[in-house]
Design a binder for these strands. Structure first.
Lengths: 193, 193
DNA sequence: CGCGGGATAGACAGAACTGTCTGTTCGTGG
DNA sequence: CCACGAACAGACAGTTCTGTCTATCCCGCG
């Protein structure tokens, strides 16, 4: 039986590996981080690593899944939900969340795009990244439908251009990128009302 | 004397290296392409390669420079210039150029962002990429000033969010990304008039 | 007490990476 | 015709990468 991570206790080997690779992959991409470094910083034996993750690819896939749970859902969706009453407010609040995120020490880029660019869109990891980006877009699309906007799917594609563009701008150092994007986003809502 | 590439003649070794690495780096990034592959596909001896480019880093820097000449200036700036009479038309025409580019076989992504994400913003290659992105932004900013828009610098930062976001969307497979971005761009111009 | 599962450290194989070096060949200008 | 520079082929060193394997250890459970 795999204990579901009792808080306070020492995390299991698998959990340590995932936590370490999350930190490293999110900030430095997957090509620039070797399994040896993950292993060393997880304080785990090599055999243990390969027992849990038969190949580096499997680890990256697990990382992308976790990224979706923690970032897409835990940060973007959940936090923006809290900050608004209506679907429309909650859409715009995404950029308020981004604004805080860009300014925080936790800002670590957008892993799905990083992996996509590193691996290319025909590689399995690129494909997985594209899927995760589609899942993120689905959240936007769903809210757009709730808000009664027309053509939620097309709306979400435009909206995501603003999300991606602002994150890249922030990575370059533009700390106000979220505010710029929010202004354009407000306009986009008007266009789709 | 280094002959300036007489057309028809066999390109010099240096030129072959640059042409090969341009193709490879633009599509696959820099971490995923080794110097051995560049050397083999350039039909060049290893010593010749290291004579012209003392390290891989130097080659990547040369690649980024060429990317600026051929893509930033040769494609984005020059082509959009042709397609409009006024500064404002020429701004919007950027996305018409993108639209064609996204649909062509030559579409090979946005190298400056790829390198930035691969290397991180504190690495020399990341720094160089940020500079090249700033140079691209300067073109937008200059046109915005010509068009009499207010705050051309801030305008260009918002504009670039649309450019980056649409290119990433196209890499994911959204062929209409340029048209979406253009619609938002037209709105942005209104806001800054 | 003893056994088994999961973890440990770390050697090892084989490939790929960057960069160095040797020795040869070829074309051109003096 | 010869000398020189540039490019050639390719061996080599040293590191790093992924993945395998051996051998040991520790802890909980029957």
């Amino acid at each position: 039986m795999q204990a579901p991570e009792t808080p306070g206790a020492t995390p299991t080997a698998r959990e340590r590996i995932l936590a370490t690779s999350y930190r490293l992959f999110a900030r430095r991409g997957v090509l620039g981080v070797g399994v040896d470094e993950v292993i060393e910083r997880s304080h785990v034996a090599k055999a243990t690593f390969y027992k849990h993750f038969p190949s580096k690819n499997d680890l990256v896939l697990a990382f992308l899944d976790r990224r979706e749970r923690e970032w897409t859902v835990g940060l973007v969706e959940a936090e923006s939900h809290k900050r608004g009453e209506t679907a429309e407010e909650r859409l715009l609040a995404i950029f308020d969340v981004f604004d805080e995120w860009f300014r925080s020490d936790d800002f670590d880029g957008i892993a799905f795009i990083t992996v996509l660019l590193e691996m290319g869109k025909s590689h399995p990891l690129g494909q997985a990244s594209i899927q995760h980006l589609a899942n993120l877009r689905a959240i936007v699309s769903k809210r757009a439908a709730e808000a009664g906007l027309r053509d939620p799917e097309q709306f979400a594609r435009s909206w995501q251009i603003l999300m991606k563009g602002s994150i890249i701008a922030a990575l370059e150092g533009d700390l106000d990128a979220a505010q710029r994007a929010k202004a354009m986003a407000a306009n986009l809502i008007e266009q789709f009302r």
